[in-house]
Design a binder for these strands. Sequence first.
DNA 1: GATACGACGCAACGTTATTACATCGCCGAA
DNA 2: TTCGGCGATGTAATAACGTTGCGTCGTATC
Lengths: 170, 170
Amino acid sequence: MTRQPTKPRPCTDTDCLGQHAPAERVALAMSLCKSRGVQLTELRRQILELLWESGRATGAYELIEALKRKVARPVGPPTIYRALEFLMSQGFVSKIESRNAYVPCAHPERDGDCLFFICNACGSSLELTDARLERRISETAARLGFRPTRQVVEIQGTCSTCHAVGSETR
Amino acid sequence: MTRQPTKPRPCTDTDCLGQHAPAERVALAMSLCKSRGVQLTELRRQILELLWESGRATGAYELIEALKRKVARPVGPPTIYRALEFLMSQGFVSKIESRNAYVPCAHPERDGDCLFFICNACGSSLELTDARLERRISETAARLGFRPTRQVVEIQGTCSTCHAVGSETR
DNA sequence: GATACGACGCAACGTTATTACATCGCCGAA
DNA sequence: TTCGGCGATGTAATAACGTTGCGTCGTATC
């Protein structure tokens, strides 16, 4: 994972027009954990921070490498996966199944699964909730007598930035 | 993979009320390949058949085992993955990303990605196309300037059958 | 202090997928 | 006929992703 400057950047949630620094994201997670009575330990905090700094979906083993550089501590796979599991259980992180990679979530306070637009060129992922889409899925599920527990909706393609760059160089 | 009888069974496409034997599915694939000018080789055909016989999402290494039993031929991972790639490129098979497993597709003649309802209890997967859902996704993508190439929509949960069984035994 | 519990460390291993290169059969051109 | 070319498959090794099992450590509680 390439280290990025720890600066505010456009929100990955497409409904949100604001800019947020990783520190802000982590602070929100910390306060949520406090109110939920769970521990955002140093390790978990660092992983969440790395994910926010990364700017793209990041693999578990990339996180191991990044942690090595960041805290000069060897961290084994089980440790990373346990931390990721915790972060996912709290809604701070989602797994991008089609890439075996993990992204931080912009709105951990609201539950429900997100929709992701993932750029094949730059690896960026855009997070979005779409109530109508969720409703449509729920209706279909109900019609089938199916009880959903998790929705995986990942749209792969080319983001507007990469498409623009691609056509310039053509 | 447990071998199943090669018999007609309810269509995995929820829009289709018919029953189809694996052989019928394979025959359709063969004729499509012929008209498309691509080769459905013996190996590819056998893999597609195994997937139809399986009745649930099947892993690549499960297919290797199944082929060993079926044709007494050792088949390495690259071979399987190449065949799966071909079958996916022709729309005969889809990958269930959230399970690292593969399912046969009921309607290879129509392009576009499907929606899957995957039962965590029995592993069955229900395939469905939903034009309104696709349109909704396309619209959202267009609004973002995003150009989709592939949609991964996988709804995990409990199917009606498993839910019924679960409540009986409770 | 004894105990219990959650978080982390660590070695080993299991599963999924890819790389790199060799081989084989078929087809068309010299 | 022989020679390339090409698509499909074979093979060994390795990469990438994830889990199991068990031990340790700190902290809170009794």
